[in-house]
Design a protein around this nucleic acid. Structure first.
Length: 714
DNA sequence: TTAGGGTTAG
């Protein structure tokens, strides 16, 4: 035995499959910590960022899931007794001997059924039950009396299969059971459970499962997989795992359907290690996963944006000779999009079409989204042409995604044509998403009147306004300084019961940052007060300039903790802009420091031996100016300490072509010009400002080092 | 939905 395989393993583990050793190690990536130091963002020390609460986390569920090594797969009644002792102690397992089983390689067989001559009568009867009024128990019983006789097991099962919604199926199930005509076998429970799963009735399903146990009725793989997937759909992940464990404890081995169902449970919880552990144990057990299992893995790695993981899945499928089907391709495309690989998504799509698979709505939606995000106008429009010429399937989600793509790419004319197409169509009429996309397009193009026309049209046609549409419109009105109209839109939205979210607050806060007169400012504050009074109180306290740094730090942390992750950086950007507009430069620097401390600006500064660079693309104009000053102050300190400097310094603002660009390159250019800093726009790379060490040194040495002094010299 | 698992929208 090769030394590398002579390893001690826990009794529950199977010996490693050598092919698994080729897998890229995506579990042990180094955690990159944001470095910082009090009031100096770019001279690093190693203090940990203060922990912010994640508002969307549900620790109560996932925390209940104990590690797999101590729960799932420990043993069953068939496990040899010598393996059950002292599970904590390492035991040598010879890989050439049979491995402990984790799943059955044979799927559960379904019992064959023969043609039922009464099928037409039974279907007619089921339809009568489906049509009858459930609110009247008597009416239901009256129809039940007319059931074709004799009421055999096969007849009852057929009727149960046809009944919907779940309430009717459940009533019928109880009635059949009360008739005591034949024993209620497993299949009855399986059929009713599937119906209950449609209604997301996990409580009832669990009750029935316990009835089965109490009455000695066997739970099979179909029962368990239905219970597990119902729990999953109800977000009761702890219940899903609990039933999976119970299955092992009763000695029943899961087949691949149940196994991939539980893989999906762990995947949905983001428990990648547990999923991979199960997957590898299954593989070591001789399992060749089917496309559905691979789709689960793809989705999981896609959600994590883990490109190595996606590559691993592709490699595994290739090694095992498993051809991706349409769903796997769709999942892979989504995953490539989430991992930020538009080029690979495009090749994968072509590979799929070449292999003879026709894309469906989901495929095209995924791809349109990817091209839109990547701002690949030519590919997106080419795809649209192919959709039309090949008559590939379209639905309203695809239409709306196309509209959003047009918004991302600023394709106003194309969006107008699509929107008209939707209005003419029977099945894809514009809904609130479509109107929002159009408002977004007009709003980001500064076309206030067109955006407002759509807002009025929505009201006339009874299309529901949503918070996103409202935010886009307010943003556009704010930029156009139409504050009275903005307040009216806000009031209408509130009257319609729209719940303001953090994006809307961020949008109002940005309007605050560029309001020029007090009258307008008080109107916008009035709106913001209704959404987030704590934020208003915070801004007011900053503006007054009397709050201590420590107090501000604590309150800022509390506000961020209560803010959705995506809205945190915009909040901080706006707050910095507000401070700079009020000439509170010191406070702006403190806020940038706090934002960096909380990880809102990752990758702001990069160092190599030859070049140090500042990437301000995700910063507002005021925040970018503040970051630049802070950077230069840090470099000054490094000069004072006579440390080594690189030859080149660069600041990157981006080309400013994005629809949300606030003209950052131009604002940055005038800022460095005002400071007489030796940064020059690169001719090769738009939005990149370069300075050599030889130019920068004398300029910095002629300046005072403090940021406040730098700012004061503007 | 026709006894069990997987994929689409700011």
């Amino acid at each position: 035995m090769a030394a590398s395989l002579s390893m001690s393993v826990d009794v529950y583990c199977v010996a490693p499959n050598p092919s698994d050793l080729k897998r890229p190690n995506f579990f042990t990536r180094p955690y990159r910590q944001q470095s910082h130091k009090n009031f100096t963002i770019f001279c690093c020390s190693s203090q940990s960022p203060p922990k912010l609460e994640e508002p969307q986390k549900k620790p109560s569920l996932s925390d209940q899931l104990r590690p797999l090594s101590t729960t799932v797969l420990p043993y069953n009644e068939k496990t040899p007794s010598h393996l059950l002792s002292k599970p904590h102690k390492s035991t040598w397992i010879n890989p050439t001997k049979p491995k402990p089983s984790v799943l059955s390689l044979n799927r559960q067989k379904r019992s064959p059924y023969s043609y039922n001559p009464q099928i037409r009568n039974l279907r007619r009867f089921a339809k009568q039950l489906n049509d009858c009024d459930t609110s009247s128990h008597e009416a239901f019983l009256a129809v039940l009396d007319t059931i074709p006789r004799p009421l055999t097991k096969e007849n009852a099962l057929l009727v149960l299969n046809y009944l919907k919604p779940w309430e009717k199926a459940h009533l019928f199930f109880d009635w059949v059971r009360s008739q005591n005509l034949f024993p209620m076998e497993t299949i009855f429970y399986n059929v009713i459970m599937k119906s209950l799963r449609f209604g997301r009735q996990f409580g009832l399903i669990e009750q029935l499962a316990n009835d089965m146990i109490d009455n000695g009725i066997l739970l099979d793989n179909i029962t368990y997989s239905t219970i597990i997937t119902c729990a999953k759909r109800c977000n009761l992940f702890d219940k899903a795992v609990e039933w999976f464990e119970r299955m092992y404890k009763t000695g029943l081995m899961p087949d691949e359907v149940t196994y991939s169902a539980i893989l999906d449970v762990y995947a949905k919880l983001g428990k990648v290690e547990e999923v991979m552990s199960l997957y590898e144990r299954g593989r070591a057990n001789g399992w060749t996963p089917d496309p559905i299992a691979f789709a689960v893995l793809c989705k999981m790695f896609g959600e994590a944006g883990d490109y190595d993981g996606i590559r691993y899945v592709l490699q595994e499928m290739n090694n095992l000779g498993v051809q991706p089907n349409l769903v796997v391709y769709n999942t892979l495309l989504e995953a490539m999009g989430k991992a930020g690989k538009p080029g690979l998504a495009r090749s994968l799509f072509e590979e799929m079409v070449d292999s003879g698979i026709t894309p469906n709505e989901k495929t095209l939606t995924a791809l349109v989204k990817i091209y839109g995000k990547a701002r690949w106008a030519r590919d997106a429009l080419g795809l649209w042409e192919r959709m039309k010429s090949n008559r590939w399937p379209m639905d309203f989600i695809l239409y709306n995604t196309l509209l959003s793509m047009c918004a991302d790419l600023g394709l106003e004319g194309e969006a107008e044509r699509l929107f008209e197409d939707m209005k003419q169509s029977e099945s894809c009429r514009p809904d609130s998403w479509s109107y929002t996309a159009m408002i977004n397009i007009y709003g980001s193009g500064g076309k206030v009147d067109e955006a407002m026309e759509l807002f009025e049209e929505m009201s006339e046609l009874g299309v529901e306004l949503n918070v996103m549409g409202c935010t886009c419109l307010i943003q556009c009105l704010g930029k156009a300084k139409k504050i009275d109209v903005l307040v009216r839109v806000f009031e209408v939205a509130m009257d319609k019961g729209i719940k303001p979210d953090d994006r809307l607050c961020g949008c109002l806060l940005s309007v605050v940052s560029f309001c020029e007169n007090d009258d307008d400012l008080s109107k916008v504050y009035w709106c913001l007060q209704r959404c987030n009074p704590r934020l208003v109180a915070f801004v007011r306290s900053i503006e007054q300039g009397k709050t201590s740094f420590e107090t501000m730090k604590e309150e800022f942390k509390a506000i961020l903790s209560n803010t959705e992750v995506d809205a945190r950086r915009p909040f901080c950007n706006c707050l910095i802009d507000i401070c700079r507009n009020k000439n509170l430069h010191e406070r702006a620097h403190e806020l940038l420091y706090l934002g960096t401390l909380h990880g809102l600006y990752p990758g702001l500064h990069k160092k190599s031996a030859v070049e140090w660079s500042l990437d301000v693309r995700s910063l507002s104009v005021g925040a970018a100016q503040t970051a630049f000053e802070e950077w230069m102050t840090s470099v000054s300190k490094i000069i004072e300490r006579r440390e080594v400097l690189p030859e080149l310094f660069s600041a990157y603002t981006g080309a400013g072509t994005h629809k949300f660009s606030q003209g950052l390159p131009a604002a940055f250019a005038s800022h460095v010009k005002r400071l007489a800093a030796p940064f020059k726009q690169s001719e090769d790379k738009a939005g990149c400002f370069m300075a050599t060490r030889d130019d920068l040194l004398p300029w910095l040495q002629s300046r005072l080092p403090s940021p406040a002094a730098l700012a004061a010299s503007i």
